[in-house]
Design a binder for these strands. Sequence first.
DNA 1: TCTTGTTAGATTGTCGACAATCTGCTTGTC
DNA 2: GACAAGCAGATTGTCGACAATCTAACAAGA
Lengths: 229, 229
Amino acid sequence: MAKLDFSPIADTTRRAEIVALLRRAILTGQLEPGQKLNELRISEQMRVSRAPLREAMRELVQEGILTSIPYAGTFVIDVTAKDIVDAYSLNQVLDEFAIEQTWPQRDQRFFDELDRRHEAVKQATRALDTTRQIETALQLHGLIYEWADNSVLLETWQRLTSRLQMYFALHQRARNEPVPAEDVHETYVTLLKGSDMHAAQRHAREHIDLDFEELLSYARGLEKRASKN
Amino acid sequence: MAKLDFSPIADTTRRAEIVALLRRAILTGQLEPGQKLNELRISEQMRVSRAPLREAMRELVQEGILTSIPYAGTFVIDVTAKDIVDAYSLNQVLDEFAIEQTWPQRDQRFFDELDRRHEAVKQATRALDTTRQIETALQLHGLIYEWADNSVLLETWQRLTSRLQMYFALHQRARNEPVPAEDVHETYVTLLKGSDMHAAQRHAREHIDLDFEELLSYARGLEKRASKN
DNA sequence: TCTTGTTAGATTGTCGACAATCTGCTTGTC
DNA sequence: GACAAGCAGATTGTCGACAATCTAACAAGA
C-alpha cells in the first residue's frame, strides 16, 4: 500500500473564517489601532450572526490584538512606543533561544525551506507588494521557531508575530514609501547555513535592531499626535 | 483633595466568571487532561446559557489550556513529558530576561512585596494546602515579571504560568504526598535582594531544575500509561 | 467475517430575539 | 448659566431554539 500523508482538512466553521478575516484586516492595518468593532455592523457585512463573530473576537482578544471592555465594546489594540520596545526586546531573547534550539537540528530540509522562504520575500519585494513582503519576511524569520521543536515557544512566537506584523504594516502604511529593494536577509540566511551559531545569534539581534529604529520613531510620532487630542 | 487610587471594579459578565471557574477547575486538576467539556451539561450546572460558556471556552483555548476540534468538542489539553520540558526550558530563558529587566528597578516596594509573597508561600506550606502552595509559589516567582515593566513579557509569563500550575497540580495530586516542609525559596528571595544579578539568574535556573526532575518523571509515567491504551 | 450503507441519538455550530448596560441629550430646577 | 435627573437610542450580554455535523449501533451484501 502506497504511503500517503493527508493533511487535516480545513476547519469549516464560520468562526474560523471570521477569525482569519478579522486578523487579516487588523494586521494589514485596514482596521486601525483604537478603532471600535461594532458587532451588529460587522455581522451584517459578513452575513453572519453575532454568536460566531463574538466567539471569533474573543479569540483575537486572547491573541492580544483586540481588547475588550465589558458593555463598552471591543477595540483594536493601541500601539505605543513602549509596546514596540517591549515586543522587540522579548523578540531578541526568543530569537537567541530559538537559534540555539534549532541549531543542532538543521538538515537539508531546513536549508531548502530557508531558501524557499527567502525566495518568497525577494519575490514580494520585486512585486512591490509591501503587505506580502512583511508577511513573508516574518515567515522567513519564523522558520527557526518551527524548527526549534518547542510547542510553547512556537505559540509565543506566533502571538508576538501578530503584533510585529501589525506594527510593521502601520509603519509601512504611514510612511507610504517604496519598499527597500536590496535584500536585507541575505546575511541572515547565510549565517543560519554556516557553522558559527553565536554569529547567527548576534546578527539576529542586530538585524532586528535595524528596522526597529524606524519603527520606533514612527511610534513616537503616533504618541505625539495622540497626546494632542 | 486626597489622592486615592481606586482599583477597577470587577468585570460583572457571566463570561468572566465562567472563565475564572473553568480555569480554576482545570489548574487544580478537577478537570483532568484529555477530558471533554460537554457544553450542555456544564451550562446547566452553572445555570447559564451556552453562549457565554462557549465564549469562555474560546478564551481558554487561546490561553492554551483547552483545545478545540470543530464539531467534536473542547478538551482539556493533554500533558506530555515533552510539553513539560518545553515549558520549562522556555521558562528558564524568560526568567533570566525578567531578572535582567527587573534588576535596576528594584526598590523598597519590590522587596516588601517579595517578602509578602514569600510569607504567603510559607503560610500555605504550614497549612498543608498544596493547591494554594503551588499558587503562591508561582505568584512569588511572577513578581520579577510584574516588575520587569514589559507587558508582552508579562502576558507570556501568565500563559506559561497556567501550564506550570496545571503540571504541578497534576503532579501533587498523583503522588499525594505531604508537601515539602522546608523553605525552598529562601535562597531565591535572598539573591533577589542582593547585588549579584548573575548569581540570581543562575539560581533561578538551577532551582527550577530541581522540582522539574520530579515533574518529568511523573510525566513520563503518564505517557507509559497512555501508550498502554 | 468483513465491509459498506443507513439511521437514530447526542453534541456542536449558528441564529434571531430579548435583557442589561452605557452614552448623550433633553429637561427641569436653582 | 450650571448642574443633576431622567429619558431615548444604540450597543453589548444572554437566552432558547433550530441547523449542521459527528458517533455508534445496526442491517445488508459480498
